[in-house]
Amino acid sequence: MAESPARTAFAEEALTHLDTLYRGALRLTRDPDQAQDLVQEAYLRALRYQHSYQQGTNMKAWLFAIMRNLFWDRFKGSRKEDVSLDDVGEFVLYEKLRDEGARPEADVLDKLAASEVVKAVETLPPLHREVVLLVDVEGFSYKDAATALGVPIGTVMSRLHRARQQLQKSLYDYAVESGIVRGNGRPQVQQ
């Protein structure tokens, strides 16, 4: 039986957001096969509950909400399993590097490998990782991120703040371990 034009149009529009869902699923599951399973299930569920989508609202946020809810159901079992971030205090990478004599952008950011940045993102607890994915990677506003995650805007802001501090701390530790900067923040002397 042929699909209805309305269902086809809905599916077409939903598929324009596929890259956002796939990127999100890949960073949440950290596994390409699991990411594809998750995204496929999310799209099937979206079509099944198409009637609950309100025209004119943010379809990308709605689809992301379906995907991340499935992630929590399937991969985590319970939201309580999410571990909280270690308290890194007020860690501001720019200030740390500047105070220790390095040039923060030229000496450090320009030398970080993309794979290390991904690793730092993927080691954030999922509740914090998903905020970084929405706001930094996908460019969601705080309001749209709050809609997708089902939390108040203040929660988005506080999780984002803590996630960025943890991210910067991880990248600083990597920069020290890999010799990009010395332990005191100074760049290695070029040979």
């Binding site: 699909e3 086809t8 599916a11 939903a14 598929l15 596929l18 890259d19 796939y22 990127r23 890949l26 960073r27 390409p32 594809q36 995204v39 496929q40 799209y43 099937l44 079509l47 950011l109 970080l112 993309a114 794979s115 940045v117 991904v118 993102v121 970084v132 994915l133 930094d136 990677v137 460019g139 991210l167």
Partner: peptide, 23 residues
């Protein structure tokens, strides 16, 4: 840096599979 590092496209074969599944 975070945006560019985490950027990736959907594998074309998966995109096509999904398109067929939903059509």
């Amino acid at each position: 840096l975070v945006k560019h590092s985490c950027d990736c496209d959907t594998p074309p074969a998966f995109r096509e599979k999904l398109r067929q599944l939903l059509s």
